[in-house]
Simulated scan of single mutants.
Amino acid sequence: MIRRDDQALARHEAGGAGAASWALEAERARPYTEQEATAFLSLHHASAER
């Protein structure tokens, strides 16, 4: 599993499903950084102009 900032949180291995669930919940709870929010808004505005 890769975070929005490209940091690896977990990798799939046999019997490692529990690691993926905590990593997913942690990433969902992590607030956007200012840089991530700016990138998201730029992409959103570009797609809205099409």
Score class of each variant (00 low, 15 high):
16 G>E: 02
24 L>Y: 08
10 A>C: 10
17 A>E: 14
20 A>I: 13
9 L>T: 15
32 Y>T: 03
26 A>S: 12
15 G>W: 15
24 L>F: 04
26 A>Q: 14
35 Q>L: 10
8 A>G: 03
16 G>N: 09
18 G>V: 04
30 R>Q: 12
23 A>I: 01
16 G>I: 05
7 Q>P: 00
20 A>V: 10
14 A>P: 12
33 T>Q: 03
30 R>D: 00
4 R>D: 08
22 W>N: 01
5 D>P: 07
9 L>Q: 13
11 R>K: 09
9 L>W: 06
18 G>R: 06
12 H>A: 10
10 A>P: 00
12 H>M: 10
17 A>P: 00
34 E>F: 02
24 L>I: 13
27 E>K: 06
25 E>K: 08
30 R>W: 00
12 H>Q: 07
13 E>S: 14
33 T>H: 05
34 E>H: 06
26 A>I: 00
8 A>V: 15
7 Q>F: 02
15 G>P: 10
30 R>K: 11
8 A>I: 14
34 E>D: 11
6 D>Q: 10
7 Q>I: 00
5 D>Y: 05
26 A>N: 11
11 R>E: 14
4 R>Y: 05
35 Q>R: 13
16 G>F: 10
34 E>S: 05
9 L>D: 12
21 S>V: 15
12 H>G: 04
33 T>S: 15
4 R>M: 03
5 D>V: 00
21 S>G: 01
29 A>P: 07
16 G>Q: 10
31 P>M: 09
21 S>I: 08
31 P>K: 06
34 E>K: 10
11 R>D: 09
33 T>G: 05
31 P>F: 14
7 Q>V: 09
11 R>G: 07
23 A>E: 07
15 G>K: 12
21 S>N: 03
8 A>D: 12
15 G>R: 10
26 A>F: 04
11 R>A: 13
13 E>D: 13
14 A>L: 15
27 E>I: 01
14 A>F: 15
30 R>G: 00
4 R>H: 08
13 E>C: 09
17 A>R: 06
20 A>M: 10
33 T>C: 04
35 Q>F: 07
12 H>E: 03
32 Y>L: 15
29 A>E: 14
16 G>T: 09
34 E>V: 10
35 Q>G: 07
19 A>N: 10
12 H>F: 11
23 A>F: 04
29 A>Y: 05
29 A>I: 04
18 G>P: 03
31 P>I: 13
5 D>L: 00
12 H>P: 02
27 E>Q: 15
23 A>L: 03
32 Y>K: 07
4 R>V: 01
33 T>F: 03
20 A>Y: 09
23 A>Y: 06
12 H>I: 08
8 A>L: 15
19 A>I: 08
17 A>D: 14
16 G>C: 09
34 E>M: 05
22 W>T: 12
10 A>K: 04
17 A>Y: 05
9 L>V: 12
10 A>S: 07
18 G>A: 12
23 A>D: 04
13 E>I: 15
35 Q>Y: 04
28 R>A: 14
19 A>S: 11
18 G>K: 04
20 A>H: 07
25 E>V: 08
30 R>C: 02
8 A>C: 08
6 D>W: 02
35 Q>N: 06
23 A>W: 02
21 S>P: 00
12 H>K: 06
10 A>M: 00
4 R>Q: 04
33 T>Y: 06
9 L>K: 06
5 D>T: 08
9 L>N: 11
7 Q>L: 04
34 E>A: 14
5 D>I: 01
18 G>M: 01
